[in-house]
Design a protein around this nucleic acid. Sequence first.
DNA 1: AGTCAGATATTGCGCCATCAAGCATCGATA
DNA 2: TATCGATGCTTGATGGCGCAATATCTGACT
Lengths: 155, 155
Amino acid sequence: MPSATPIDDPLITTFGRLAEAYSRLEQWLGSAMESEAGLPHVWFEVLIRLARSEGEQLTMSSLADQIALTTSGVTRLVDRMQVAGYVERRPCPTDRRVSYAGITAAGHDVLDRAAVVHARNLRKAFGSFTPQDLTALDTALDRVREAASRLPRQP
Amino acid sequence: MPSATPIDDPLITTFGRLAEAYSRLEQWLGSAMESEAGLPHVWFEVLIRLARSEGEQLTMSSLADQIALTTSGVTRLVDRMQVAGYVERRPCPTDRRVSYAGITAAGHDVLDRAAVVHARNLRKAFGSFTPQDLTALDTALDRVREAASRLPRQP
DNA sequence: AGTCAGATATTGCGCCATCAAGCATCGATA
DNA sequence: TATCGATGCTTGATGGCGCAATATCTGACT
């Protein structure tokens, strides 16, 4: 008789696939970016999100939300990136509690360089994918992302 | 004129989607498992992989490989789980360098309980997915996972 | 048998993220 | 205007993970 344990639930396996796929990609791409562009992958995530935002800046809170870190973690992350000269803190004129993290010229430079190597590595990783595969992956991921963002907050 | 910067490369966006989808799911499911089953998500990953393995055990190295950690991290992770009574170390009879991590009866108990709540939460998260959506996601993820495991090692 | 390169697991150290607490500020309400 | 809960960010303490070095062991080659 087959085991009736819930550890064989197909959804668990699906999520396991997602975890493994992401972890492996992240490790490979992350170490490649570190060695080829001298930029930790988190820094790249910060910079690209700042570059794509209105005014090329984001509040600490929304940045924390976008890169899935606590505001505490973002405070110190931005500290380090500020020392490196890639971002700067800008006060908010209408609310003295908030401070924006904005990308600097040096940040733009390193971001562009890193994006080139990142795109090249991604093409290496997804080399076996046809355009149809990629769009299928995109839509599937978008559905997951949407479902995930609908989830209630941790409290 | 449109910006010619490589930061708008569609592959970068795809990977960003993957990162965001995974991070959000992982955070939500992880904190839920922690609060509802008293089990950190990494512990669950370890236990389910041990339970599914030949002899319900795995060498430290292959375990490290499966959960995307260094052997160093696995050493201490298994330390903690051993103190909790969920796993045990077993010497290898044919090679005295390797030690197996094996799941205990207590580990099985907590794994089964956690799997129930995990499956329930997964069903909550993927509630809007049709069976077709799920199989599409599965095949797409499997292709990514396969591509990722083909990547050369970090050296 | 003797030697040595490679493999396996563990340990010391430092970095980085979370958690909890604290501080300053805002908006609403009396 | 005065008060008070909520919000945004920062800081101190704690814990976990990776990197590099170490110890032990294996397998192959001489």
